[in-house]
C-alpha cells in the first residue's frame, strides 16, 4: 500500500510467556482495542516499526504529488484544474498530518525527509509510474486513491492513537478523490474516440501497478505477523487486494471499457473475482529504484528541498531577530 514491505523490527511474535510484564500489559491494551498514545510505554520495536510505516506513508503522499502535479498546468478546463490542484494539495496536507504523527514518536520531519533523500526510506511503488495522458489523472484518482482508501479505512482502527486519528482525517478528506477521478474517467470513456482511447490506455497501464500497491502475497510477506498482532497492520495484503478488485471490476464495466487483463473472471464458488498476478519481478525492480520514474521523482524532491533551504533559513532567522528585538524592547 502506501506503506509496502515494512520490515517489522522483530521477526516472529513473542508468546505471552516470553513477554516481560510490561510487554504483556501493552499487548493486553492492544487486544482490548485501547489506543496507544505518545507518552505511553511501548516496545522499542513497536516504535521503530511505526516510524518506518508512518514515515513511508507520509513520503508516499508527498512524492505522490508529483505524478498528478504533472498535469495541473495542462488540465483541460478551469474546473478540472481547480479540482486537481485541490486534490494534490490534499496529498501535501496528508503528508503533513502523517509526519506529525511520526513526530509524536520522537522522529522529526526533517530527519525523515533526510532519510528519504538519502534513499534510506521508501515510498509507494505506484508513484514511480508516469502519468502520460490526461485520463491518467482520472485513473490515478479512481484506482490509486481507490486502492489507498481500502487500506486507509482499515487503518483508522490501527493501535497507535495519532496514526489512527490522522487516518480518520485523511479518509474524510479523501472521499472526494476517488469520486472525482471516476467522474473524469466517465467523461473520457463516454466522450470522443480519442478520449476513449486515452481512458483505455490509462486503465491498461495503471492496473498492474495498482495491484502491486497492496504488496506481495501474504505467503511471501514475512513481516506481517507481528504487525498484525500489534494492530499496526489491520488486514492482510491479499484480503485488501481482493476487496479492491471486487469493487473495481463493476466500475470498469459501467465505463464500457475493456478489462485490463484476461485473467479477470467472476468465480461463482469463491464469490469473488479471479485475477492475474502482476509481474512481481517488476515490482521488486521498482522497489530497488529501477521503476520508470524513480530517479526523476527523487531528483524533484531533493531539488525542492535544496532550493528551499535559503527560504526556510531566512524565515527562521527573521523570527529569531524579531524575538530578540521584542526581548530588547522589554
Amino acid at each position: 500500500m502506501y506503506a509496502q514491505m515494512i520490515k517489522t523490527a522483530r521477526s516472529g511474535v513473542k508468546t505471552r510467556e516470553e513477554m516481560t510484564e510490561q510487554e504483556r500489559a501493552f499487548q493486553d491494551k492492544i487486544d482490548a482495542d485501547i489506543k496507544i498514545e505518545p507518552r505511553d510505554w511501548m516496545p522499542d520495536d513497536y516504535r521503530a516499526t511505526l516510524i518506518r510505516q508512518i514515515g513511508q506513508h507520509a513520503h508516499s503522499e508527498v512524492v505522490g504529488q508529483l505524478p498528478e502535479g504533472n498535469w495541473i498546468t495542462r488540465a483541460p478546463t478551469l474546473e478540472r484544474k481547480a479540482i486537481l490542484l485541490a486534490k494534490v494539495q490534499d496529498e501535501a496536507g496528508h503528508g503533513l498530518y502523517l509526519y506529525s504523527a511520526a513526530e509524536t514518536l520522537g522522529e522529526s520531519r526533517d530527519e525523515l525527509v533526510r532519510l528519504l533523500h538519502e534513499g534510506r526510506m521508501k515510498y509507494s511503488s505506484i508513484f514511480n509510474y508516469p502519468t502520460l495522458n490526461w485520463a491518467d489523472i482520472g485513473a490515478v484518482g479512481w484506482l490509486v486513491d481507490g486502492a489507498a482508501i481500502v487500506n486507509q479505512v482499515a487503518l483508522q482502527r490501527t493501535s497507535y492513537g495519532p496514526y489512527a486519528r490522522a487516518m480518520v482525517r485523511i479518509c474524510k478528506e479523501e472521499s472526494f478523490h476517488a469520486r472525482q477521478g471516476y467522474h473524469a474517467m466517465m467523461k473520457m470513456a463516454l466522450g470522443s474516440p480519442e478520449q476513449r482511447k486515452m481512458a483505455q490506455d490509462a486503465l491498461n497501464r495503471l492496473w498492474f501497478p495498482a495491484m502491486m500497491m497492496f504488496g506481495p502475497h501474504d505467503s511471501e510477506s514475512t513481516h506481517s505477523e507481528q504487525s498484525m498482532a500489534w494492530k499496526i497492520k489491520v488486514k492482510s495484503n491479499d484480503e485488501l487486494r481482493q476487496q479492491f478488485v471486487d469493487q473495481t471490476i463493476p466500475q470498469i464495466e459501467y465505463l464500457g471499457l475493456e478489462l485490463p487483463e484476461p485473467g479477470i473472471k467472476w468465480n461463482e464458488d469463491r464469490g469473488h473475482y479471479d485475477f492475474s498476478d502482476p509481474d512481481w519481478s517488476e515490482f521488486m525492480d521498482v522497489l530497488r529504484g529501477n521503476g520508470p520514474c524513480n530517479v526523476d521523482r527523487m531528483n524533484a524532491r531533493r531539488k525542492a528541498w535544496d532550493d528551499g533551504e535559503w527560504v526556510r533559513d531566512g524565515l527562521l532567522e527573521h523570527a529569531r531577530k524579531k524575538a530578540a528585538r521584542a526581548v530588547a524592547a522589554e
Binding site: 504529488q65 484544474k81 490542484l85 485541490a86 494539495q89 501535501a92 525542492a304 528551499g308 526556510r312
Partner: peptide, 24 residues
C-alpha cells in the same frame, strides 16, 4: 499552481495552492 509539489516546505506548498485556487 506550477509550484504545487515543489515548494520549500509542506506548509508553503499548501498555502501557495490555496492562493492559486482562489485565483482560479
Amino acid at each position: 499552481s506550477e509550484w504545487c509539489g515543489h515548494a520549500p516546505v509542506l506548509e508553503e506548498d499548501i498555502a501557495l495552492a490555496n492562493t492559486a485556487l482562489d485565483m482560479i
